[in-house]
């Protein structure tokens, strides 16, 4: 079956915090949305779940860049994750899922996998 995606509106510009992240709930689980106004692109979305602890906390990490790569540092054990690729800088065998994100007027939209299955022929 072909995977279907949808662009879901998850929040508005007013919900974002400049240079930091917020968490939203999607059909694919919790996602962290970061707004870095001094970069282009300025919006990033990655899974909110820290793979090292299993806790939903990545939106609460400190953002910045390391050697030019936009990153967030996990607030629990301080590993850095690329906001572009989701790869952990300290251990490239670990990564978090990234989500395409766009600004649609005042709304922030994420591209999520539709979990609703198509009716199948018996």
């Amino acid at each position: 079956m072909k995977a279907r995606t949808r662009w879901d509106a998850v929040c508005t510009v007013e919900d974002l915090v400049p240079e930091s992240g917020i968490a939203v709930w999607t059909e694919n689980g919790p996602v962290a949305v970061f707004y870095l106004p001094h970069r282009l692109p300025a919006l990033f979305a990655i899974s909110h779940t820290d793979p090292f602890s299993g806790a939903n906390v990545l939106a609460r990490g400190i953002t910045g860049d390391l050697k030019g790569e936009p990153i967030v540092a996990s607030p629990l054990y301080k590993q850095h994750f690329s906001l572009r690729t989701g790869v952990c800088l300290e251990d490239d065998t670990v990564s978090v899922k990234t989500y395409p994100v766009l600004l649609d007027g005042n709304r922030i939209r994420l591209e999520v996998q539709a979990t609703q299955q198509q009716p199948q022929a018996a």
Partner: peptide, 22 residues
């Protein structure tokens, strides 16, 4: 204050101590 929020560790931002489950 808006300019200072993104500078803080999560514990300072939310003025509480984060535990292992978030």
């Amino acid at each position: 204050a808006t300019d200072h929020v993104p500078l803080q560790d999560t514990n300072d931002t939310f003025m509480a101590n984060m535990q292992k489950n978030g």
